[in-house]
């Protein structure tokens, strides 16, 4: 699974950093860095982080698997 955070929307509440610290880290006071690729053992934590985000900035989903050519 992959995540992307809409950092236009993010206001640095950092709920995700508390809930899934292996995936989300603060860089300074409110800059957010994260790992786009979510390991399986972090999935549940990331789901909680996405649900808890006050501005609903976290999208979790499958990557495009290119078919055809």
């Amino acid at each position: 699974m992959r995540i992307v955070v809409d950092l236009t929307r993010c206001q640095g509440y950092a709920q995700c950093v508390f809930l899934a610290p292996e995936v989300f880290q603060l860089h300074g006071e409110e800059g957010l860095l994260y790992s786009s690729a979510v390991p399986d053992d972090q999935l549940e934590r990331v789901r909680q982080a996405a649900a808890a985000c006050p501005v609903q900035a976290i999208l979790l989903g499958e990557e495009v698997s290119a078919r055809g050519r």
């Binding site: 992307v4 790992s35 786009s36 690729a37 499958e62 495009v64 055809g68």
Partner: peptide
């Protein structure tokens, strides 16, 4: 922190497209 080949975007839904990459 992360490798360059791991930043694939998640889909909101599968758009059922023919990807010509």
């Amino acid at each position: 922190h992360v490798a360059a080949d791991t930043t694939g975007l998640p889909m909101r839904r599968d758009p059922d497209a023919d990807w010509r990459l």
